[in-house]
Each structure stands twice: as C-alpha cells, then as structure tokens.
Write a protein that binds this DNA or RNA. Structure first.
Lengths: 180, 180
DNA sequence: CGCTTTTTCGACACGGTGTTGAGAATCATC
DNA sequence: GATGATTCTCAACACCGTGTCGAAAAAGCG
C-alpha cells in the first residue's frame, strides 16, 4: 500500500482493513504506523547488503561489479521507490524509522569506506578522506535513484547506470575506466 | 519556528500565536501550513540563484568561483537547513510546496546544464549528457548540505567544501584542478 | 471439558485541521 | 465626524485520524 500513495496518506484504518482486521486490532501488532514502517525498513537490510556485496568484496575499480550492484539497486527502487524515498530520504520520518534508517545508512557508508581504505592501502589513488567520499557516493546513489523514481522516463536505465557508475568511480578514484 | 523543530510538529496554533493572532485568524492569510511553507520557499528563489551566479556565468572549471558559491550555499544551509531539508529533500511536502520546489530544482539544473553545454561547445571534455550530469551535481550538492546539517561536526567546513567542489568538477569534467 | 493465552474490536478521549458567521477595527468618502 | 465598505479577528463548530482500554471471542493446552 505504501507503493500506491504517500505514507502520510495511508491511514491505519486502511492498513488494518486490508489485513482483514479492525483498526484497533492494528495496535496489537504494531505501536504505530511508524513502527510498522520501521519493521519494513529493517527487513530490507539484508537485501541491501547483498546487492553491493560483490563489488564491496572485490579490489580495484571493478567497474563491472559496481555497475551490476547499482543495477540491482535501481531495479528495487523502480518498484519500491515511493516508500524507500520516504524512509531513506525524508528528513523527518519519525524517531522509530529514523533510528533504523540512520543505522542502515551508516552501515552502508562504513562498508563503502572500508572498501576505499583497502584500495588506498593497495596503492590506488583516492581523492579525499575515505569516509567523506563514501558518504558522498552513497548519498549520490540514493538521490539519483530517488530522482529516477520521480522522473522514470527522463533517461534510459542503461545511460543512467553507466553515468552513475562512472560518476562514483570518478568521484572516489578520479578516473573513468573503460566500460568493460 | 521551522528552524526549531520539524515542520509537522509546528502547529498552526503556535504559528498564529507567535504572530499574535488566534489560530482561526491564520486562515485569513494562508490556506494551510503548506501554503505558508510554499510562500517561504518561493521567497528563497532569488537568493538561491545569486549564490551560484558567478560560477554559472564564468567559463572553464573556475574552481574558485564554484567553491565560493558552494560556500555561500553551505552557510545558508547551516542556518535554515532544517526546513530547507523538509522543503527540498522531503519526497512528499504536499502539492503546494512540491510545485514550487520542482520548478526551483528544475531551474537550478537547467542553469547548471547550460553552463556545461557551453563548456562542451568551447572544447572542454564533458563526461556525459549535460542535463544528467547537471542533475547529479545539483542533487549531490543538496544532499551533501543536508547531511552537513544533520551531522554538523562530522567534517570541518573547509574540508567538506573542498571535497565537494572537486567532486563536482570531477563528476562533470573528469578532472581535479589545482586548488587555486 | 475447564483454564490460560492470544487475538479481536467497539467505545471513548484527545488533538490538530479547516469552516463559518458574526463582530471589531480600519479606512475612504462626503 | 457620520456613513458605508473593506479589512481583519476570533469563538464555536464539525471533521478526521490517532491511540487507549476493557470486555469478549477464539485458539491452544492440560
């Protein structure tokens, strides 16, 4: 239902009705709509990590793995973009969601940052402080996908992914590899 | 008041009270809280353009002008970040705000895009479709500033601005100029 | 079958929103 | 400075979504 319309416009009454129970019955399972959303976001953790796992584990630029991970993420955003935006982009999604969201984002940044640090140790040139670059890259990814959801036909998926992949590599490592 | 707490938590009663009128009097001036926010956002248009005017008008990389504009924008975000985030980042700020916001963002991207196209015509290498690069750059800027507001002490302003400036130039032109 | 635990739901109180209509304040005009 | 029109104010009301509570139904278990 969070795919259909803004979360704020989905009433607990509708949620409960769709589940076949009365509104007050909803409160037996969740404390509030925010708590439900928080649980939903929490479920996404695993999937989120898996999408990028290959690239995070590999070394060097590895454009192919990065592009593949981003492609998978874009696919998910195309489907669940509406509420993903509201959970991950919205500055004030309520304390419940905020807590989980912040942890998720922080974890994502940390994983990315470690990847960059490893590359730096391996002799690769890195264009700034790894944690800051990682944060920027992760944020650029989220916001680009959010934008892709908002304007689905603005650019072909392929072009978007190629441009984003190269943009991230350029952002972090300062180079644009061949598209192999 | 939107600097103090999330917009959703500022009641019309408080707004009216602070203005010295009764709650119902508020509706004489604005249709809703969203309409007030929309008017507020609208007022920001001019300032927003001015900040980046120098760089947008100049040619080549012109790191200095870009860095200066970003610095001014960061300063504004440090002050009004709370509600700027809610107006510019929030996916569902209501139809009133949405309309104005989308126009503002689109205008910003267009201006940026024109700048890039001009550079491309002048023989500078550009790393992709100008409109897409411009959108990414503008979004990266917003989200970085929003993040800087959320985590004020994560990085020194100087480092943040330097990294962001170079990141944008690398994103669009693929090069990192000297920091002059 | 009794007993406990789990699950459901109607009824209530609360708080924020938006509307309405009547009255007060302001201002222009003669 | 009386008059009428316009601007502004506000108390009272209706509405909707939220969250709580306790009673009762359903399910699980000895």
């Amino acid at each position: 239902m969070f795919r259909e319309k803004p979360i704020s416009q989905v009433t607990i009454d509708e949620l409960a009705g769709a589940a076949g129970i009365a509104r007050s019955g909803f409160y037996f399972y969740f404390e509030s709509k925010q708590a439900l959303l928080a649980a939903l976001v929490d479920q996404v953790i695993g999937e989120n990590d898996l999408e990028m796992a290959e690239w995070l584990a590999s070394d060097g630029l590895d454009r192919q793995a990065l592009r593949l991970g981003l492609g998978r993420a874009l696919f998910r955003w195309k489907i669940d973009g509406r509420w993903l935006r509201e959970a991950f982009i919205n500055p004030d999604p309520g304390p419940d969601v905020m807590q989980i969201r912040d942890r998720l984002v922080a974890d994502g940044c940390t994983a990315f940052s470690r990847r960059i640090e490893r590359d730096a140790r391996a002799g690769l040139t890195v264009m700034g402080r790894p944690t800051l670059l990682a944060t920027m890259a992760v944020n650029l990814r989220s916001v680009t996908f959010a934008d892709a959801y908002a304007h689905p036909d603005a650019y072909p998926d392929d072009e978007l992914l190629d441009t984003l992949t190269d943009a991230i590599l350029r952002l972090v490592y300062g180079v644009t590899p061949d598209r192999t």
